[in-house]
Every structure is written in C-alpha cells, then in structure tokens.
C-alpha cells in the first residue's frame, strides 16, 4: 500500500458512499442542489482530516476500552468548529444545510475511518486517508447533486442548463425525497454492473 493509494482508494475503489454505504443521511438529504452538495462534502472532509490527524496523534494515549467516546469528543469538537465558522462566513449555506451540520458527528464515515484507519496507522497516512475519503464522499454528493438539480430544477449551480420548456415543468420528484432514494438505488446498481463486467474481464 503506497501513500498514493492511501489517498486515492476513497475515490472509487472504497468510495464511502457507493461501495460501503456509509453516511447516507446527509448524502440523500442535502443533494437537492450542487452547491449544498459541495458545501456538505467539504465540511465533512475538513472534519475527517482533522479527526484522523488528531486520533492518529493521540492513539497511544487512549485506553482501548473508552476509545469510542474519545473519538466522538474529538469529532464533535471539529464539527463545532465547522458549524460556527460556517455560520459566520457562509450564513446562507449554513441555513440550507441546517440540522445536517451538527449531524456530521454521527456520520459513520468519520467514526469508521477513525476506528478502522487512524487508530492503526501513522500520521501522514491517516491524513491522506481522511483527505481521500473526504473527497470520495464529496464526489458522491456532487454526482447525486448534479443529477437531482439537473432533473428537478433544470439548472446546475444556479445556471440555466436545460431549455426553458423543461425548466417551467421540471421533474419535481427528483429534488423531493423519493427522487433521492431512487437516484441512489440506480447509481448503486450501475456501479455494481460495472464492477461485475470488469471482474468478468479479468
């Protein structure tokens, strides 16, 4: 396992959302627009890098029996930092993401990486792993956001993409709750299909 692999494995091969199905709540809830998706992804990436960094540093000091509560305190501190700075500098985005910013604490991607990776590996590798996983998470959010915003509103990042006729009566269901579940199911099915064919070729 090289350092580069630590970084890139989160993008596709071990993508936290599509392959491991972790941290689904924010993925489905905030991807009604690309802008929200990017904001959420970057917030989670910051927390992931920060918590992996911190936990890798103090892993020798934490008794094994109380490690989970310790991880949660570390993660919650970083989430509070994100919550307050986003409220100060990007109030609109903070309002859109709302409840899901404090809920980054219970995002299983972050706790999962702390337990499975940062707890066992050195500082550099943990930071790279957190960064890669965070970007993979952001990638998944953006893919869903692009599909849902395009179909549900006809725009991307607020710019008009599809013709006026479509924008006047878009596929509203795509930005409502059912659209999130169905888009996610179809994307996972697509990835499964791709994995089957590449495995077959080998």
């Amino acid at each position: 396992m090289t350092l580069l692999q630590d970084f890139t494995k989160g993008f596709i091969k071990e993508n936290p959302v599509f392959i491991m199905a972790l941290g689904l709540c924010p993925v489905l809830a905030v991807t009604t627009s690309v802008e929200n998706a990017i904001g959420m992804g970057l917030a989670a990436t910051f927390v992931l890098v920060g918590s992996n960094f911190m936990i890798s540093l103090i892993k020798k000091l934490i008794p094994a029996k109380v490690r989970i509560p310790c991880y949660i305190v570390v993660i919650a501190s970083f989430v509070t930092v994100v919550d307050m700075s986003m409220n100060a500098f990007l109030p609109d985005l903070h309002k859109n993401l709302g409840l899901f910013i404090p809920l980054i604490v219970v995002n299983c991607v972050i706790l999962g990486r702390a337990e499975a990776f940062a707890n066992r590996n050195n500082l550099i590798r943990s930071i790279l792993d957190g960064f890669g996983m965070g970007l993979g998470f952001t990638l998944a959010l953006v893919v869903l956001g692009v599909i849902r915003e395009l179909l549900g509103v006809g725009t991307l990042l607020g710019y008009n993409i599809l013709p006026l006729g479509f924008r006047e009566s878009p596929m509203l269901v795509a930005i409502l709750a059912p659209g999130a579940f169905i888009t996610m199911g179809l994307l996972m099915g697509l990835l499964n299909m791709r994995r089957k064919t590449t495995q077959g070729a080998e």
Binding site: P178, I182, G189
Partner: peptide
Amino acid sequence: QAMKGMPIAFIVAG
C-alpha cells in the same frame, strides 16, 4: 443481478 441487495432496497424506499 446488479440490482440485488442494496440498490433494490433504495428503489423500494423511493
């Protein structure tokens, strides 16, 4: 085949 398990669960949830 490709929809077995998790993907079809999401469609049902939808």
